[in-house]
Design a binder for these strands. Structure first.
Lengths: 146, 146
DNA sequence: CTCCTTCATTGGCGTGACCAACATTGGTTG
DNA sequence: CAACCAATGTTGGTCACGCCAATGAAGGAG
């Protein structure tokens, strides 16, 4: 009676969007339980991987709009995971630095996310997971550049 | 300089969510150009596939919250794609019916969506598309029941 | 020196997915 | 039959995310 129309289930765009609903819920529930948001993880990850940077640069690395970076960095700074200092060499720029607590926070969030991946991919074998990841990566890369 | 951290690109949840951003944009841009929204298509599809139903039932079929169904049906009714009449057999229930214009609208939207699938899957071969669709379907089905 | 760009920040928008409350009505059960 | 529970339509929010416009300050290029 409440079956999903074939028109929908046959379309990759539907599958991706709908699966993303579940994925987002898993991720944000898991993060919320730790008092965090997705934006926090993205920015911490960008910071850890390429080192201190301006807010604009962090936003570019983590695919976060610079206006949203402001609020997220505010929150991270208030929790002591990040330090915001004026860039001495560059007038208007802020220099964002990862604190030791921030690095630990990132590791904790990584553990949380690893668990989420497992819940998300549920019934898939290791081989299928790899195949899915590879295909998604190729499609995403195609849209990231164009 | 603005490279995406491996921590992100390696995670299926990131790939799915990020790809969903692109997918949603393609879909909603295409629909917007025709004066429609995603909810409209879902409800029309549910109507066409299983016949006239109450708003609550349509929402269940198309995975739309019942409070959001109200607004979408308002819009569809105002455009003449759907008719809302009180269910004679059932006091509080509304009976939603697809009009001939609604059926035509659905077909037009289908054409739009087919084009979107092509843009979305971009560089993938037919075989890869089939593999991706199958894997996504399995994962989604797993989350739809639990 | 002027122009164009970059940066941080504020404030806003739209979408999609929800949730709570309410009045009403149908169905179920004691 | 009466009392209760479930479902329905509706209003009016909330939240995360992605994005856009404008602004003031500052750097770099010509």
């Amino acid at each position: 009676m409440d079956e999903i129309p074939r028109r929908l289930t046959a379309k990759p765009s539907w599958l991706i969007n709908q699966l993303s609903v579940h994925s987002r819920r898993l991720v944000s529930d898991a993060f919320a339980a730790a008092g965090a948001r997705g934006y926090h993880y993205r920015l911490l990850a960008a910071l850890h991987e390429s080192g201190p940077a301006s807010q604009a640069e962090l936003g570019r690395r983590g695919r976060v709009d610079r206006s949203d970076v402001v609020a997220a960095i505010n929150e991270l700074a208030a929790q002591g995971y990040v330090e915001r200092t004026p860039d001495p060499d560059h007038g208007r720029r802020n220099r964002i630095t990862l604190t030791p607590e921030g690095a630990r926070r990132l590791r904790d969030m990584d553990d949380v996310l690893d668990q989420v991946q497992d819940d998300l991919l549920g019934p898939l074998s290791a081989g299928d997971r790899e195949t899915l990841t590879r295909l998604l990566g190729r499609v995403l890369a195609h849209h990231e550049q164009g």
